[in-house]
Design a protein around this nucleic acid. Structure first.
Lengths: 330, 330
DNA sequence: CGATGATCAGGAAACGTTTACCGGCACGAT
DNA sequence: ATCGTGCCGGTAAACGTTTCCTGATCATCG
């Protein structure tokens, strides 16, 4: 089509300079009432929309924040994304998403992209606690806030669930309901998020006087299928009277395996995803405070964007048990 | 921090002009092998990353495509987003998301944003078939492809499920299984997506010799709660032996209402969301070809970006029934 | 051997903003 | 009356690229 109107066109239409138009559009400094009115009229008649590229180039920064997650279809992450967007929209920031698919190469490419695009900040769920390299972002002076997953030794803000406590809550809940032979379905041992849940869980069982042998810990890869397979093995072994699953996708797989099975062990899953309350028996879960996590992360990122020199901090949010049928006393 | 290196820094380091650096970085034209090597070395040592803002400003366009949906937490839309990102990434495009929350004002603001940011194209699930105003986008020359929902009279590409056929499939399936007293749970009558499913559904029942009175159509607002409430009413009336729900969120609500109810009517839901195969009885669904929709939409947008003048077309993709327990013959 | 053409690198303009700086004007104070 | 002070608007530079155009070098051919 025809070219879009620029600030120059507006200036010409209003009979003023581009500087004045800019001042009016950005509401900065004071310009004569009549002039301002004329400018606004010209903006309307020309249909002028400021070019964000020119603006960002001149200002040296965009109004975009990036949310980078391993899996954009996981409800936990989609809720985070959705909530973050809602929050930052109020400050006229927009959100770009990228998924890394748990692939370090994709993550690296993604970081380069974000640096080139001069995003104002990044909310990151890193692929790996040791091998994710934040330096492209930090070297470029882009504030990063970690969400849900740690990076070893990184001097970076983090917002996450208090996972040790989450694991303890799970153990206490199961113990209270009368179960005494726990099993755990969890993720890879180098993923701190799920591993801390296991640590807290086992510690709590020990304190409660139940010696939980290491053998009851089954490790998968966070995907639904591995949850299904590992649960099948646990059922076959037939030694556990309750199972705690530390991750939402594996929880679904685990449930699938025990669906309809007589005298199945109690199931305590992670995350209050929709299916957990629709299935029979409905599934008790450790509910992570997703919205609160998103809010805290967004707030923290905002702080870092205004004051980059402050000390990084860690915010741990408390989960809670949602008690349903799958952990009823037998 | 210190300033980021610009193309000038690289040029100085390599002892060439910025033009040459640009040519090397973009792999355009031919530059001397030695020079190119020197430039690449300088890029590495300086840690240069091209500034996408400068580039886009100069080139007059970005490499971003926007996906605008009403609800970023609905699995149907998240799958679309996720798949689109995966596809366009191959062409070095990135994706920005915005949710409109079914709010026309938000949608309008969002369009203005996108125009200002000079996105290369938009994949849009419009808020309203009559009141969504595409002109800000089209006036700015931004290609738009509609996904899942129509806009009345818009000369715009559309990719969607063949909803009339989907409704017919639903009726045929239920009839085949021996049900003869259908009810329908659907969205607002001005939403063509769900309304066409109803139309096709009723037409198919009629052809099958079952006169379905209009009274069996219950209209909600697409949210889970309305599905729950309307299903409760249908159960109370006790006249239907099968229920077709035309939308995924309402499907979940409907199931919730009939969960554990003796002699509940058969349920045929929409979308193969996770819960449908985990619940008891597992729920038969009309499965929309989500990935294929995303692929078709991305491809179509690509075409419009290269050739804006072509005639708009409509692509309808065929759904299929996934047969589970909730529609077993009684 | 000179002219022509091909090839390649650099200079500089342009993309659309914002903003530092300057100039002009009005007004008040000395 | 003159000078100083504020205020407000315009001029122009700058942000970092890409790309047109020009000029230089070199080879080929007449």
């Amino acid at each position: 089509m025809s070219q879009r109107p620029t600030i120059m066109d507006v200036a010409a239409a209003a009979g003023v300079s581009s500087a004045t138009v800019s001042r009016v559009v950005n509401g900065v400094a004071s310009v004569d009432r009549d002039l301002a009115r004329r400018v606004r009229a010209a903006v309307r008649t020309t249909g002028y929309v400021p070019n964000a590229l020119g603006r960002s180039l001149r200002r040296g920064g965009t109004a975009q924040i990036a949310v980078v997650t391993p899996d954009a279809e996981n409800p936990y992450f989609t809720q985070i994304i959705s909530e973050v967007e809602r929050i930052v929209r109020a400050d006229h920031y927009s959100v770009t998403v990228a998924h890394t698919e748990d692939d370090l190469d994709l993550e690296r490419d993604c970081f380069a992209q974000l640096v080139g695009r001069h995003v104002a900040g990044v909310l990151l769920v890193p692929v790996h606690g040791a091998r994710t390299d934040l330096s492209p972002l930090t070297d470029a002076g882009i504030p990063v806030v970690l969400v849900d997953r740690w990076i070893d030794g990184a001097a970076t803000d983090l917002v996450a669930t208090d996972n040790i406590e989450a694991g303890r809550q799970a153990a206490r809940h199961l113990h209270e309901r009368g179960f005494r032979a726990p099993a755990v379905l969890t993720g890879p041992s180098d993923l701190r998020t799920t591993e801390e849940r296991v640590v807290g869980h086992l510690a709590a069982w020990r304190e409660l006087g139940v010696a939980a042998p290491d053998s009851v810990i089954a490790r998968g890869d966070l995907h639904l299928e591995s949850g299904r397979e590992l649960m099948a093995q646990i059922l076959a072994a037939g030694e556990a009277d309750c199972v705690y699953v530390t991750n939402n996708r594996m929880s679904a797989g685990a449930f699938e395996s025990m669906r309809g099975v007589q005298d199945a062990p109690a199931l305590l899953a992670t995350d209050d995803d929709l299916w957990t309350r629709l299935v029979t028996p409905s599934v008790s879960v450790v509910h992570q405070p997703v919205r609160a996590t998103a809010r805290a992360a967004a707030r923290m990122l905002g702080q870092r964007m205004t004051d980059p020199e402050e000390e990084p901090s860690t915010t741990l949010l408390r989960s809670r048990i949602i008690d349903r049928e799958s952990t009823r006393p037998r």
